[in-house]
Computed example of a mutant assay.
Amino acid sequence: MNPQGKVAIITGGATGIGLAAATEILQQGAHKVVLVGNIVRDGTEAARDLNREFGKNKAIFMEADVTKMDQFEDVFKETIQYFKRVDILFNNAGIMDDRHWEREVDLNVGGVVRGILLAFKYMGKDSKCGHPSGGPGGIVINNADVLGLQAIPGAPIYSTTKHAVIGAVKNFGDSYHSQRTGIRVVGLCPGVTQTNLVNYAADKQLTPEFGKATLDALSQLPSQRTEIIGRAVLYLIRYAASASVWIIEDSDLFVADIPDRKNVSSFVVSFK
């Protein structure tokens, strides 16, 4: 898919990976980008900065909690009301906080499932919600993390949620769904990326010992900038097949075989 002229919704879009993805998509001529989050200050500042760079009203912020189906659905309804379509959903919102694991599961897994279901409902070619002749189809990219492909005992619940995201990609991305809806569902597994999620990971585990183990594990992996992940998102929009899962680590993008992360089927592209 060429992102030019398209409308994208990005959850967790005000900072970090989400904001980097919004920047890349707008650089390629997207019509609108909708940043979704529940911290109004961050969202309005991010939209303001993007509009300064790319033009008036290219980006807007919508306050919503993706653990609440009605709020998430309102984002789709309002986007279609104003912009007539949604072509891209980046399910990016997530937290690493095993101390509050119920919220972590609901956000990291529930938010992804809600997003996929809403994409099918409002974007699918078989959809009648706001589209008398069907939706445009499109793509749903789900932020799964490399820790969805390997164990990290210091953050067991976080890793479990990301394994669940991989499962959602493989199931919802199956041809049974993609042929009906015209929507590709894909997974992106970033390695360690310079975000607050990583910066505060040690403080958000079940015990201080777990936090130290998490920090030790993450410190052994290469680190990359958020801009690299934004470029990977753009690549997936253009080329990724439905149900495919991709690793972006140390600025290199790979197609990954599941479940063994070490069994990488093919090198794709470097963003170094």
Rank of each mutant, 00 (worst) to 15 (best):
Q4K: 15
K6Q: 15
V7A: 04
A20M: 11
A21H: 03
L26Y: 02
Q27M: 15
Q28Y: 04
H31N: 13
N38M: 14
V40W: 05
R41E: 15
E45G: 12
E45I: 10
D49G: 13
M62C: 14
T67F: 01
D70V: 10
F76R: 05
Q81S: 12
K84Y: 05
K84R: 11
F90N: 07
N91F: 09
G94A: 05
K125Q: 14
P132Y: 14
G135H: 00
G137K: 02
Q150L: 12
P153Q: 08
T161V: 07
A164K: 04
G173I: 03
D174M: 06
D174P: 10
Q179K: 06
I183C: 00
L188D: 01
L188R: 03
C189S: 12
P190T: 12
Q194W: 09
N196R: 14
A202G: 09
Q205W: 07
E209V: 11
T214P: 00
L215Y: 09
Q220E: 08
R225W: 06
I229G: 00
A232R: 01
V233E: 02
Y235S: 08
A241T: 09
V245N: 02
D250L: 05
S251E: 07
D252Y: 10
I258L: 15
P259W: 06
D260G: 05
N263Y: 03
F267E: 11
V269P: 09
S270D: 12
K272S: 06
